Amino acid sequence: LKGVVVAGGVLAGAVAVASFFLRNKRR
């Protein structure tokens, strides 16, 4: 169960970083 929580956190972080980079590329 702990691994699932960690994986979810990593996935959420990756999505946040990806969206951040996409926003920067638009400018």
Score class of each variant (00 low, 15 high):
L1V: 05
L1F: 12
L1K: 09
L1T: 01
L1I: 08
L1W: 12
L1G: 05
L1E: 02
L1A: 08
K2L: 09
K2T: 05
K2M: 09
K2V: 08
K2F: 09
K2G: 07
G3N: 14
G3H: 12
G3S: 06
G3A: 09
G3Y: 12
G3D: 07
G3C: 08
G3W: 15
V4A: 13
V4D: 02
V4I: 06
V4W: 10
V4C: 11
V4E: 02
V4L: 11
V4Y: 14
V5W: 04
V5E: 03
V5I: 10
V5C: 12
V5G: 07
V5Y: 00
V6K: 14
V6N: 04
V6G: 03
V6C: 12
V6R: 12
V6L: 10
V6F: 04
V6Q: 06
V6W: 08
V6S: 05
V6I: 13
V6M: 15
A7N: 08
A7M: 11
A7H: 12
A7C: 12
A7L: 11
A7S: 10
A7D: 03
A7E: 02
A7Q: 07
A7W: 07
A7I: 15
A7K: 12
G8V: 07
G8Y: 06
G8N: 06
G8S: 13
G8M: 02
G8W: 09
G8A: 08
G8R: 03
G8L: 10
G8K: 02
G9D: 04
G9P: 05
G9M: 07
G9T: 12
G9L: 07
G9Y: 03
G9H: 02
G9S: 15
V10P: 02
V10K: 06
V10L: 13
V10A: 12
V10Q: 02
V10W: 13
V10S: 03
V10N: 03
L11T: 02
L11E: 00
L11W: 09
L11M: 09
L11G: 01
L11F: 10
A12H: 04
A12T: 13
A12V: 08
A12D: 01
A12I: 04
A12C: 14
A12G: 07
G13H: 15
G13R: 10
G13W: 10
G13P: 01
G13Y: 02
G13F: 15
G13A: 08
G13N: 11
G13V: 07
G13E: 04
G13L: 12
A14P: 01
A14N: 01
A14S: 05
A14Y: 13
A14T: 07
A14W: 09
A14Q: 03
A14F: 06
A14V: 14
A14G: 04
V15Y: 13
V15D: 00
V15G: 01
V15S: 02
V15C: 14
V15Q: 02
V15L: 12
V15N: 00
V15K: 04
V15A: 10
V15E: 00
V15H: 06
A16S: 09
A16Y: 08
A16R: 09
A16E: 02
A16F: 09
A16D: 00
A16P: 00
A16I: 04
A16M: 05
A16C: 08
V17F: 07
V17Q: 01
V17W: 06
V17I: 11
V17N: 00
V17L: 07
V17T: 03
V17P: 00
A18W: 10
A18I: 14
A18S: 03
A18H: 03
A18L: 11
A18Q: 02
A18N: 00
A18M: 14
A18Y: 10
A18K: 01
A18E: 00
A18T: 08
A18G: 04
A18D: 00
S19I: 07
S19H: 15
S19R: 09
S19K: 13
S19M: 14
S19L: 15
S19G: 07
S19E: 10
S19W: 14
S19Y: 14
F20C: 09
F20V: 11
F20D: 00
F20Q: 03
F20T: 03
F20S: 03
F20L: 09
F20A: 07
F20W: 05
F20G: 03
F20I: 13
F21N: 00
F21W: 12
F21A: 05
F21H: 02
F21Y: 11
F21K: 02
F21C: 06
F21Q: 02
F21P: 00
F21S: 01
L22W: 14
L22H: 03
L22V: 06
L22T: 02
L22P: 01
L22M: 07
L22N: 02
R23A: 06
R23S: 07
R23E: 02
R23N: 05
R23K: 09
R23T: 06
R23D: 01
N24K: 10
N24T: 09
N24G: 09
N24R: 11
N24A: 14
N24S: 13
N24D: 04
N24L: 15
N24W: 11
N24F: 13
N24I: 14
K25Y: 13
K25L: 13
K25D: 08
K25Q: 14
K25C: 10
K25R: 14
K25E: 06
K25T: 14
K25S: 12
K25M: 15
K25I: 15
R26W: 13
R26P: 08
R26A: 12
R26L: 09
R26T: 15
R26C: 08
R26G: 12
R26D: 08
R26F: 15
R27N: 09
R27G: 14
R27F: 00
R27I: 09
R27A: 13
R27Y: 12
R27D: 07
R27H: 14
R27W: 14
R27V: 12
